[in-house]
Amino acid sequence: MISRISSFWASDIGWSFRGSPVAILSAIMVVVLLMAALFAPWITPQNPFDPSELNLANGFSPPLQENPFTNDFFVFGADNQGRDVFSTILYGLRISLMVGVLAVAFGLVLGVSLGLIAGYVGGRVDSIIMRTADIQLTFPAILIAMLIFGIAKGVAPIEYRDQVAIWVLIVAIGLSDWVPFARVVRGAAMVQKNKDFVLAAKLAGQGPMTIMFRHILPNAMSPILVIATISLALAIIAEATLSFLGVGAPPTKPSLGTLIRVGQEFALSGEWWILFFPALTLLMLALSVNSLGDWLRDALNPSLKS
């Protein structure tokens, strides 16, 4: 492990990383937020969704002030039900990151598979897949995700809606972001499939699945990594937006977007901290993942620079 880190540090990418303060700062931020989300149950002073740990007398406690009735102290304040805002943020961060990562993973698997098939098989299959991609790309991803969410809501029985909401969200965002993966992998597959090593693999009697995934796919790894990072930022924003609009994570399992939606009602009456801290967390998450993606794109492939 240590030798791998040191070899990364010495490589070209490591060199570019060391020379970019923005990249280092973003990476630290992402790691901190990731750790905070992973270890939320151990870091937070309370489980905000266990009613037995809440005290209504703590409702609307401002940040960094001791509550005169209960003598409790909240770093980021408490919401209307006496929940510690810091704890709700870490639990919300968990949902936001989980939805974002799983949605990108789903879009990646779908896009890479379809792209490989389109590029390797070619012909009619290729044109059907890429035409679908073109049509989908004319519509904004957020609209498609909303539509899928709406349909799923209509299909799911009412008592299960809250439980499946998170999974529907993952599928909806994943289905709306597969196109960039498919395009870049298709391009790589079309270039690679006529090369000698693929021919050799064919002569050695390997099946199309092995050739596609073991011989062609590794050649497209670095653009896939770049697109995945940028997609992660977009997926986190999409999730937050949908939840904010009330068509995403339910109030029983709030993500950062849901927290902002709830906090906005209180901000108008002066309890700014219920809105401000979740919004700030989302901002830092979106900015750091995004700048990490930008840096990775420039470092791995300078020709992609916009």
């Binding site: 901000a267 919004a279 989302l282």
Partner: peptide, 20 residues
Amino acid sequence: IGVSLPTFLIGIALINIFAV
């Protein structure tokens, strides 16, 4: 920075500054 901000956060920020 503006490009990577979610639209709804910009809206909320504007509301809280100019309206509230």
